[in-house]
Design a protein around this nucleic acid. Structure first.
Lengths: 252, 252
DNA sequence: CGACACGTTGAGATATATCAAACGTGGTGG
DNA sequence: CCACCACGTTTGATATATCTCAACGTGTCG
């Protein structure tokens, strides 16, 4: 049941037992990929998609000078390139952060599945739209938040997402990313990330040991980061306090 | 044939005559919306989706202080909230920039259509993934480009998108956005946008009169903005020179 | 005519980047 | 076992991009 982790806790899109079985049967290969390697590149035409079974992966866009901007971080249970199924060509690179195991599903099989099972098709569509909702929040994060808020927002996101797949103990979770990676997520230099993280530590909002991150005051961190988890569309939100109305203001 | 403009020039997702007809029949209402008004808000549960027939619209996220970040700009022929069909709840606000006319399609009809016509379903899926691809490019733009490059990149994007729907004469197009709007797109203050635009004018890369923007040297502007149009997935790219290989560099 | 939205300009403040260097730590090979 | 190296983190000093505040001009619209 490799697909068992797919779409975990996503309210309206949870998969039925039957749908899990169908997806499992469509897996043609399970591949182990070393850390820090690039699997696909922008422009690649691909006829399979894959989801993460274990490990941390990332999607990113690089400019001519090699500056890298991550556009998504994927954790177990998430497709890394399901959008390539309708799109057929990738517009960004895909690679690993840590050593990862991925399960591969040919597009031809997805084709057949969504015709025979429209509901499953809708759920796969939903899954790609979850990415889009996260993208939007990343735009907001980078465009309108301070460095301190950006890093806080990102830490909140990772916490909530990992919590949803049972990878936290309620406060602590494993985050195998370097400060440079976080900079690539937040549009910051790694040096500045370092300084911001120290601030969070000084405010007792964050601590880390061996890549195990603790957020002793999630609500406080969420406030600093202007974080509201609604965009993750979870059936069981971590924070009871949410969906607060936000004032619509004038443009800057 | 209101739907005639949908997915124009998107290679693999162009609609057949029959599909256009089906969508047209599903339109229940055509609504005129005044400029600068908000149609839907984050958290709204909606059971219809709409596409732009005429006008400029935007999707945006606002923080507690009213700072606004646009996450998408929509022009005629584009759905503004098709993602709400699988998602059912919106994670951002939707509003107009100029007075607009939109065509409304109930989700119940889309439901029926995609079951009976899986190919159409795939194309609608594609359409929402186009948004996601644009989101990714916006993250890159804001995260890794200078103010000058951000504005250039955005101008290139709007030019190419409007060109694809026949709304340029090869150099000039109508862009009814204020400098503050552009700031909300690029994560900049309106004052800084003003200064950046003056730079572009001084470099003869841009001129404007009555909201009619001219880009006399598109290639030059694209270079400044690190712009490559691949992510727009057009059948007839504007620029012959593209798909150049970009070096993958080390993280910052 | 006044109010308002938008663009423009100036001066000063500040957040973040850049450059440079040191430090710990784990792994590796001799 | 030690020397060494690669990698990530940390710190300091300085540069610079962008923001903020403030003011003014211009056109439009009621």
């Amino acid at each position: 049941m490799l697909s068992g982790i797919l779409l975990a806790d996503r309210g309206s899109a949870r998969l039925t037992v039957e749908e899990h079985r169908l997806l499992d049967e469509a897996i043609t290969e399970v591949v182990d990929v070393p850390a820090r390697s690039t699997l696909f590149r922008a422009g690649d035409q691909i006829d399979v998609s894959a989801f993460v079974v274990e490990g941390f992966m990332a999607r990113f866009i690089a400019d001519r000078t090699g500056l890298r901007q991550l556009v998504a971080v994927e954790v177990p249970g998430e497709f890394i390139d399901l959008h390539a199924f309708p799109l057929t060509v990738l517009d960004h690179d895909v690679g690993t952060i840590t050593a990862s195991r991925i399960a591969i599903v040919p597009h031809a099989d997805l084709d057949r599945l969504i015709v025979e099972h429209p509901d499953l098709g809708r759920k796969l569509w939903f899954s790609t739209l979850l990415d889009a909702a996260q993208h939007r929040q990343w735009i907001f994060r980078i465009g309108r938040l301070s460095a301190l808020a950006r890093v806080s927002h990102f830490l909140c996101e990772m916490f909530v997402r990992l919590n949803a797949i049972g990878r936290t103990d309620g406060t602590t979770f494993h985050l195998p990313m370097t400060q440079a990676d976080i900079g690539d997520v937040c549009g910051l230099s790694s040096i500045h990330v370092n300084r911001v993280i120290r601030q969070l530590r000084d405010q007792n909002l964050y601590s880390v040991s061996e890549k195990d991150v603790s957020l002793p005051d999630f609500e406080g961190l969420a406030k600093v980061g202007n974080f509201s988890e609604r965009y993750l569309y979870l059936r069981h939100p971590f924070s009871a306090v949410h969906s607060e109305r936000i004032a619509i203001g004038a443009p800057s």
